[in-house]
Design a protein around this nucleic acid. Sequence first.
DNA 1: AAGACGGGGCT
DNA 2: AGCCCAGTCTT
Length: 296
Amino acid sequence: MNTDLHPAVMGWYATHARDLPWRSPDASAWSVLVSEIMLQQTPVVRVEPAWRAWLQRWPTPADLAAATPAQVLRAWDRLGYPRRALRLREAAIAITERHGGQVPSDEEDLLALPGIGSYTAAAVAAFAFRRRSVVLDTNVRRVLGRLVHGTALPPPSPRRAETATALDLLPADPETSARWNVAVMELGALVCTARAPRCADCPVAAQCRWRAAGYPPDEHAARRRTQAWHGTDRQARGRVLAALRTEDELRPDQVRDLWPDGDQLARVLTGLLTDQLLTAVRDLDGVVTGYRLPDS
DNA sequence: AAGACGGGGCT
DNA sequence: AGCCCAGTCTT
């Protein structure tokens, strides 16, 4: 195992770590799981208040398992990717039914839950249960990519070599490894940032291969395409859901007024129905008379 | 391997 | 107008 980087990174984390509530020793495994789902593609500053409100309302998996999709979608508010809210509810149901209401500690069991992929399974195992696991999020990938491989940014999709590198650096002791994982993530979030890294504040700048190589540019820049927003299906979906968070039911004509392109709106509504983010209300003849958030 | 999937804040 | 954010799931 390579241990050269450990003292500097661990020492830096000891003095610079943010005081985030899900890092408290008192945080339940469930609260850690909720934080990890919310943090999938949503920044910390926006997650923190939502996380507090969510845990106050649904302190245990069994509490959330009893909620309706409409309730969780409204509570999710504008965190983005609302399918995460539905999957979190489904995960709560699975935990209640299959695991006696206790969040499982094995990565394999976590991975089997809805909405939990390789990152989140490893993160919950490490941060909630202090297990030794390879936590590979966007921060860790970027930090290790720069330090070890000398690249500006990691490839669009994770490579096996990245896991091998992370495993090679992972401390053998479980508790130490859990702290190492969060320390590297924190370094990526606060110092080794994607856009304008603060190398002057970096505890391992002297050991950074990217820095030593003179900061070569991102090799994969051409392959990263920025996602459009205005006029997209995603924006239309968001507009429909935003309206339904404040109204119990919308008539078809009210929904049509939400978006100028009727064909696109029809496609978007179909997608929302497929994703179970939306329910159509029909009269006795099967004619759609309205749309609602799913009650069950 | 590539595409879909939110929304906000910063440069 | 881009770019980025503690990713996951489907095709």
